[in-house]
Write a protein that binds this DNA or RNA. Sequence first.
RNA 1: GGCCCCAUGGUCAAGUGGACUAAGACACCGCCCUUUCACGGCGGUAACCCGGGUUCGAAUCCCGGUGGGGUCACCA
Length: 483
Amino acid sequence: MREIRVRFAPSPTGPLHIGGARSALFNWLMARRYGGKFIVRIEDTDLERSSKESEKNILSSLRWLGLDWDEGVDVGGPNGPYRQTERLPLYERYARQLLESGWAYPCYCTEEELTAQRQAQLAAGEMVRYAGRCRSLTPQERVRLEREGRRPALRFKVPEDRVITVRDRVRGEVSFDCAGMGDFIIVKSDGIPTYNFAVVVDDHLMGITHVVRAEEHLSNTPRQVLLYEALGWEVPEFAHISLILGKDRAKMSKRHGATSIDQYRERGYLPEALVNFLALLGWSPGTEEEVLTVEQLKAQFSLERVTKSPAVFDLEKLNWLNGYYIRHSPVERIAELALPYLRRAGYAPGEEKLRLVVAVARNYVEYLAQIPQYVDVFFNDPGYDDPEAREVLAQEQVPRVLGALRDKLAGTGEVADAAAAKELLKKLPKDLGLGGKKVYLPLRVALTGKTKGPELHDLLPVLGKEGTLARLAKAEAAIGITD
RNA sequence: GGCCCCAUGGUCAAGUGGACUAAGACACCGCCCUUUCACGGCGGUAACCCGGGUUCGAAUCCCGGUGGGGUCACCA
């Protein structure tokens, strides 16, 4: 079997989008699953909108997700260059071939003329397409138009009597009637190739065997097939994956919230969670497994199991999955990843405290940026200004309870870990002859100033014996015990 | 509007003519654990868009409708 060669070909006009990331992922998984090659090519023929920053951002997001490429921009390879603006001579050569073989012709229509025509067609309820004005210009007419200073674009001559059938790996056979297509531009008047032309040249030259891309490209595919045929090239396999939709079922865009990978990265989503989630958007393993490692994905992915219907991006599920990964990864790693968020919030824990704090706080979050809001109790002494908290502290048994814990603490060494803390706290209610609620809630409030928060046995080891004692004293002062 | 794609719970989805009284996950609800919140465990509510065919039998095949989406650039 021939080696599978797939590619991701973003245009650098913005950050890597959720949808783009999924296309990249599917291609990458294909390559990894079947031992093929994954290529990254930059489609920067839109000179106006393309930028180097976007390219950098996209590549950095891909790397962060763990998608590495075998050939392409930055890493090189035998089929370079991998940036379309650096491949202009190549397109020129094949454009000339098309011109000479009669498949293409120069078009002198101006943008204004074209726009007027389009609007007239739209208004008349006709099909919008190029009417073919320049198709049969005589050489003399061409010379005349050139003399007027018009720079021609190059159009592809679409045979009107054909029906193009695209074989698609996820959609089956899809047919398009050429009659409604209209001659399309393959090289702009500034000499830059258009997307439809450049993809074909590049995919062919780079030996791409499978074009896996979003469904929005499906309607362009027949044009590309025509080009392959005119150039005498073998048509690759296509697989058009369905779009990712926002909550309102329209194609996902900025108004649906965070749509770029870097935004998720900044909020503290883990790359493996995003990869896992994205893989499940439009593909399913066919088993009951939902949490899948990259290794499992690489072993199981196949186009046969890609869904046809579009998928709504469900942030709730991503959050759940990300929380799952945060809770199940080694604490050390999560601690390291959480540190910048804590620093930004003004906390400066040492290594040991960081680990302890994160070990507890990670049970409460969906993404790392939420961590700071759960660590307050570990770093700041309680203020007791919450009305609910004051109410609890006002209960009559509270002085006895606080005293009891202090006595217990006095009788032991450092509170080493949660188990030790549990041991310490366990007998308190019985000793005092009180129900658990009357004991633990006041303790919680005394130590944290809040009625909600981490388990007491998680809290004590972090505060340490001295810290706990100090807070008990503060609570006693707050309720007016002077001893 | 033309062309094209799609159609199973709120969401992601399994299902490829009989095993469907339709799996699993997220979300939601309840219970348990925890005398807090979350985590975790257990359970529950909830779906084959409609109408015609084909067939002994249709979520599954065909046709039509409806709905949603994509696309119609010298953008990609």
